[in-house]
Design a protein around this nucleic acid. Sequence first.
DNA 1: CGGGTCGTTGACACATTTCAAGTTTAGTGG
DNA 2: CCACTAAACTTGAAATGTGTCAACGACCCG
Lengths: 250, 250
Amino acid sequence: MTAQHASAPTALGAVADGVVADALSAPRPLRPGVDLLREGEATDRIHVLTDGWAYRYKTKRDGVRQVVAVLLPGDCANLDSVAFPRTDYAVRALTPARIATVRRDRLEKLADERSDVARALARAAMAENAVLSQWALRLGRQSAIGRLAHLLCEMSARLGDGDAPADRFELPMTQELIADTIGLTPVHVNRTMQQLRAGGLIATTGRTVAVPDQARLRVAGEFDPAYLHRGTDGTADGYARSGERARPAA
Amino acid sequence: MTAQHASAPTALGAVADGVVADALSAPRPLRPGVDLLREGEATDRIHVLTDGWAYRYKTKRDGVRQVVAVLLPGDCANLDSVAFPRTDYAVRALTPARIATVRRDRLEKLADERSDVARALARAAMAENAVLSQWALRLGRQSAIGRLAHLLCEMSARLGDGDAPADRFELPMTQELIADTIGLTPVHVNRTMQQLRAGGLIATTGRTVAVPDQARLRVAGEFDPAYLHRGTDGTADGYARSGERARPAA
DNA sequence: CGGGTCGTTGACACATTTCAAGTTTAGTGG
DNA sequence: CCACTAAACTTGAAATGTGTCAACGACCCG
């Protein structure tokens, strides 16, 4: 990796990673709870999280929130600002974090000159798409316990190493934030979490989550990591899928 | 427009439109209820809907569905197949439809040669992202009546002309499909629809929906069309936003 | 030690689902 | 053009998952 500042590979993928990473500014620290971007705000920079956790969220006029992405180091906070300068979401640090940036015009120029950069941008956007679609399924059609299990599976997978999910990880999200992520009430998240604990699906100590049996948690959350697109990457995408088929057409 | 076959502009935007449209195959007809793509299937083609309606959906093992996109003429069925050959959703025709395709390798080549094509792909993916985020907010945090109103606003806006939403339009979706789109039960969609009718927010005759007062429906659905990114486009994005701000940090 | 955030509990309200009929509409063949 | 069928839409009553309200407890940090 030829990165100048960033300490983790970005979500842009191997090829374009070096090029873009070199263009990133030195990371700037951000305190927990502080907004990196506000809803409806215009920005001329693309922000990459290099350390810590952050999240992207949308707010209704009554103040109710929905988290639409949990960001880990390497993730891009506002990828779509490449195309649409004005964000329709806010981004907030969850833990102490560090943020590197590239100016949009610089990234546009890079994308113009190097097609692999442009394609990496497209690819990253499409990967986010897959995650958001999965969240839609979860929010629209899964029970409280299923949604929570699914979220925990996702975090475990993302925090894990390659294909191996983390069997034990720090989850700095408060129950309120989890609620805003899976579309529930904080109280109900609490109760649902107790169900998972009672069922032996997870164990918690402070903010550490332990997953004794990934398989069981995945069943509970109906989780299949394919949508995260973290496999042996490249353009080919090495997941064995079960050839499920849709309901016959009427 | 220099399109060879496609009769409508694609979602790729003005610049790349011509180039890509020229590469599209002649549209092939598709009967309602037939799957264009199945979940987990690999494909080497990008499909563009040229006529009719279609939808993208995901299915849980128990058969429960969630629609993750409603496709109108010009929309791309599987944009992300550019990066990930295997789709994690299915696509099905809702009305008699027609589909044009480009081979992935051909599109990749185009994207490599012409950075405006690559950027149009990225832009299209990011636009889908914005819609999916909005859907997440809707599914996670809106009441039944709000979700339905929001969906109707969205369809009205998309079917309208430029900035002007359609005050009257055909909605070929069954109540069951609407239910699968907004994460409700068909019965409840029915009842919710009656509420909207009773409140004078919509009027229906067969599958024609009339919206007597867009403003009122938009209030009910907490709808702001900005996320659709259909304004005076280009890279600059001409929406006036209200400078809302997030809740103070802590 | 004090104040605040976060987690936990209980009792209750309510939106939405479920189940189980009908009724209307649209399509098809005689 | 009518009879027949299946799909779509409606309706009602009862079950239930999740939300709401309100309080208390645990922990952390200054």
